[in-house]
């Protein structure tokens, strides 16, 4: 199985290493030709405004939007979550949103770097205890569509930090920065479940 990683900017190497750990071959995606015959795609952490601009100039935005619309499973972490969301608050006016998952997210919703934090998150349906989650200038999910499954929150009744809708999985935190591979394994299961 070959899974793409949007490799225009961000922590691509960490996702590549996580994918290898779960038995998947990672493929960096920088131009439209890199999208051919992928089983899924990861949108990494990084700066969403930079990635948005480079998605436009590389010609990836159209072909990638078509792939996602036709069912390509996608996993977005932090900036990747922002790119996949349906609505972005505090973004740049021309900032791109693929609208692949019905979420409204606020960029840097927890504040600046001094407010970046780590803590444990209970994830629905995941065995072996909580996930230790690292939030870096993270987006804050402000509202969630009716068909979105919230898999993890900041404590009981806290804001959603891990969500899924169909083949789209998003986290406000960075599972790629810690050695725990359960969420990358979850993404691979989603790919398999959707017959890709």
């Amino acid at each position: 199985m070959e899974v793409g990683i949007l490799a225009l900017q961000g922590d691509v190497a960490e996702h590549a290493s996580a994918l290898r750990d779960v038995g998947v071959k990672p493929r960096p995606v920088r131009v439209p030709g890199d999208l051919t015959a992928l089983a899924g795609i990861v949108l990494p952490g990084g700066e969403s405004t930079t990635m948005s601009l480079l998605l436009g100039s590389s010609g990836l935005v159209g072909p990638l939007a078509e792939e996602i619309a036709s069912g390509l499973p996608a996993f977005g972490t932090c900036a990747g979550m922002i790119l996949l969301a349906s609505s972005i608050l505090d973004g740049k006016p021309d900032q791109l949103a693929f609208g692949a998952i019905d979420l409204s997210v606020r960029r840097n919703g927890f504040g600046r770097q001094l407010d970046s934090f780590e803590r444990d998150i209970e994830v629905a349906g995941l065995g072996d205890g909580p996930v230790h989650a690292v939030f870096i200038r993270a987006p804050l999910v402000e509202s969630v569509g009716a068909h979105v499954e919230v898999l993890g929150r900041l404590g009981d009744g806290g804001s959603p930090v891990l969500c899924r809708e169909g083949g789209i999985l998003v986290s406000a935190f960075h599972p790629e920065l810690t050695p725990d591979r359960r969420l990358h394994r979850m993404f691979v299961s989603i790919i398999e479940e959707r017959g890709r």
Partner: peptide, 11 residues
């Protein structure tokens, strides 16, 4: 989290 922000700036 300190190093994490540096990771996000890569590329």
């Amino acid at each position: 989290v300190k190093r994490g922000l540096a990771d996000m700036l890569r590329g």
